[in-house]
């Protein structure tokens, strides 16, 4: 067991955990930030995606010891009022079915449209391919990413 000081969603948290513990389980079990989901544990499904210094990263493979001193953003901290362009697009197009994978999808999409301001559909499909949606709401996810990118552009 070791003590860690973490910066998550702009707040400082102190935890005492085994240093091999992936960030995912620190978020979920220690800090009560359960929006980040467990799907596969091997970085294949994207349900656990968070922003690690702004980049979409799989928290299930990221040991807590590796994030000290970095900025972590989870779905809970993506926006103050549930109104990030990606969240708004998800609401507008009513994307979720079961909803379980959607936090990961939203975190991947929000990091992606930061990097690519004007993505083509092919680029969206490629960027999102690491996130599995078992309900297969892929058509709506794709449309929502395109909509969010447009919204973000018109805001900036």
């Amino acid at each position: 067991m070791k003590k860690f000081q973490l910066k998550i969603n702009g707040k400082t948290y102190k935890v005492k955990v085994d240093e091999t513990t992936p960030l995912l389980w620190v978020l979920r079990d220690e800090l009560g930030l359960v929006g980040t989901k467990f799907g596969c544990g091997i970085g294949q499904c994207g349900a656990c995606t968070v922003h690690f210094n702004g980049s979409a990263t799989r928290s299930c493979l990221l040991p807590v010891s590796a994030v000290v001193g970095s900025e972590i953003t989870t779905i809970e901290g993506l926006s103050e009022n549930n109104d990030h362009p990606v969240q708004k697009a998800w609401q507008e197009l009513d994307v979720p079915q079961c909803g379980y994978c959607q936090a990961g999808q939203i975190m991947t999409a929000s990091a992606f449209i930061e990097e690519n301001q004007n993505p083509s559909r092919e680029e969206v499909r490629d960027a999102m391919h690491g996130n599995i949606c078992r309900c297969a709401a892929y058509n709506r996810i794709e449309n929502a990413v395109v909509l969010a990118a447009k919204e973000k552009q018109s805001n900036s």
């Binding site: 930030l33 359960v34 929006g35 980040t36 989870t74 779905i75 809970e76 549930n82 969240q87 998800w90 609401q91 009513d94 994307v95 979720p96 909803g99 959607q102 936090a103 939203i106």
Partner: peptide, 9 residues
């Protein structure tokens, strides 16, 4: 539940 889902509740 869509707003709760996008918020990660």
């Amino acid at each position: 539940d869509v707003y709760k889902i996008t918020k990660g509740e």
